[in-house]
Design a protein around this nucleic acid. Structure first.
Lengths: 350, 350
DNA sequence: ATGAAAGCGCTAACAT
DNA sequence: ATGTTAGCGCTTTCAT
């Protein structure tokens, strides 16, 4: 039994009564329209509110004002865990950094199922003013967003076709793949393999396409056996490596479309006695913390994920406050981080 | 201009009218009290709701029912970023895993300031039914929780004194420290150093205390110069190592109270030419992914963080549904993960 | 500059 | 089994 008797929480009506003003006046003052009132009144209401320990009820406020000052981060079931999704974690941080100072709250929405009948009820239930979609898959029901809800929305991690009508923020993977290809070709490589991500991921398709384009631009024909597919996991990287190591004549470089897979590739190389970078150069993507500690330290492309999250949040905030829909893609540039897993190709005598 | 004309979203009243029932009936059926009504009515209402694309407004529901079906994860400013806080990230996952199937939503509350005047308005604003506190610091205003709010609350990562009235879920660091000390002593070590975390963290104090107790139980007197303090960061570990490496006669083992610091210790050892584990054994805490990849692979204690989050969530859910306050501490057991950074001490000639 | 009143969309108690 | 009604605590016109 607590010694302090806890009175019921005072409502706006109580504050107004105690301060001798109308409830509307109190609302203005304790909201953000104090300018409308005389400084005496403002002061008095504020004082009473403080004395009474008044705390506004955000739910009531949301219902009346039809906005919740909360935004949602939407995670699809396949990659709903933050511990296994460094990408989503970094995005989350960026979003929090942007929205918190503006007094917005953040809600994590881990979709329970993707059934189109129940999907929108999970998202558009009045509790959020806008949403960040984390890397929706190619066939995701989320892509029909605009047909089902008017909620402002920004996509992160998938640069979708403009026809879908989203504003997307992503890293410029196409540009970065091109840079990596050119860098390797300049180093002397021509037989370059590519480990792509799962085909359901937009980014994976784009990276593959970019790879082909960049190679073509340097006059190199990509053979089908130079490509392998993993699932953005270390295990996927291992499998892909097993496959690509059998290509003959051997490839001299491998571009791996994310770091966990690249780590798997390095592992297999070590087992098979393939020396990196002397016999095979390996380049990853994302620059996760482990990349620097790999053996050898991984040359990779830094992915500015936190900035991506922050920028997406800014764009969303803009849409929410202006009421205008934004479209198009915003690609943030990464940066080639040169470590020790890539070097000029071995001299060939054949 | 969209081709599809989007009608205003139907409310419960509209559904009720179209289905020819009262609003109360519709509420029951679309809420979770369909059992009260005849199957015909239920079916009819459900059909109309589906046809109209009815989606309940959770805000209105929360206001009327006085619960939001949402719980908050409270992060204090110092460690508010998930990318730099693997602990909080894993807890978050555990909480999500537990609550999502129950239809609860999760809100991230990154406290903007710890001013006691504004603190509770940030948390107890009607939007959450309960809260998980992540490792509150020793002097945190959050510890006066019960004086300010009746919101159910569970603490994670800090086993607080029972007098504070919280239910706390944490790893059994005291038990694990004891186990590590005994293991090292059994290996032949007696001069064992300890790198503790920041004193503002409850867990750090407990681990230090446990260390002293365990050493005393084995009849070893701990000298003050065997202790150093870091800030749970790799840099902190480096500094502590610099300090402890100067102790004479040299220590033969170091217990480091988290893995990032242990990694820093290993780094300094390598620089100074101190061979691990031949000259110095190092044991960490937490078993972060990097631990297995360190050089040498780190012997450490696995911290079941996801389980901690999950269990805390369960306890919170219980409190919310039962209305009964739960107190006391629940300590989840870790597990010594033996790798290669610890071994018997070098033979001394006296 | 202030007050009165009409909701926001729903739940829950009570009546029938 | 169903309908009626009174709020939940706030914001927002519209008067004054």
């Amino acid at each position: 039994m607590s010694a302090v008797k806890r009175r019921a929480r005072p409502t706006l009506a109580v504050v107004a009564r105690e301060a001798g003003v109308s409830i509307g006046t109190a609302s203005n003052i304790l909201g953000s329209k104090a300018a409308l009132h005389s400084s005496e009144t403002v002061e008095r209401v504020l004082r009473v509110a403080r004395q009474l320990g008044y705390r506004p009820n955000r739910i009531a406020r949301s219902l009346a004002a039809r906005r919740s000052q909360t935004i949602g981060i939407i995670m699809e079931p396949p990659h709903a865990l933050f511990t296994r999704n460094e990408y989503a974690t970094a995005v989350l941080d960026g979003v929090v950094d942007c929205f918190t100072p503006h007094g917005y709250h953040i809600k994590i929405i881990t979709l329970r199922d993707m059934n189109p009948r129940t999907l929108w009820a999970q998202i558009d239930d009045g509790t959020i003013d806008g949403a960040i979609l984390i890397a929706p898959l190619i066939d995701s029901p989320l892509l029909s967003w605009h047909e089902h809800t008017a909620l402002p929305c920004v996509v992160v991690g998938s640069a979708l076709p403009e026809s879908l009508g989203f504003y997307c923020v992503d890293s410029d993977s196409v540009g970065m793949i091109t840079e990596v290809v050119n860098w390797l070709v300049d180093l002397g490589h021509r037989r370059i393999g590519f480990v792509q991500g799962p085909a359901e991921q937009w980014s994976a398709r784009q990276r593959e396409y970019a790879f082909r384009q960049a190679m073509a631009a340097r006059g190199i024909e990509v053979r089908p056996e130079w490509l392998a597919c993993g699932f953005y996991t270390q295990e996927g990287g291992r499998r892909a490596a097993e496959q690509l190591l059998q290509v003959y004549p051997p490839l001299t470089a491998l571009i791996v479309s994310n770091d966990p897979m690249a780590l798997g590739v390095l592992e297999v190389c070590r087992q098979r006695g393939v020396r990196v970078p002397e016999q095979l150069s390996v380049v990853g993507f994302d620059d996760i913390p482990l990349a620097a500690l790999a053996n050898p330290p991984l040359t990779t492309v830094r992915n500015p994920i936190h900035e991506i999250g922050y920028h997406a949040a800014q764009a969303l905030l803009e849409q929410i406050t202006s009421g205008e829909v934004k479209r198009g893609n915003c690609l943030l540039r990464g940066e080639l981080v040169i470590r020790q897993s890539a070097a000029p190709p071995p001299l060939r005598t054949g």
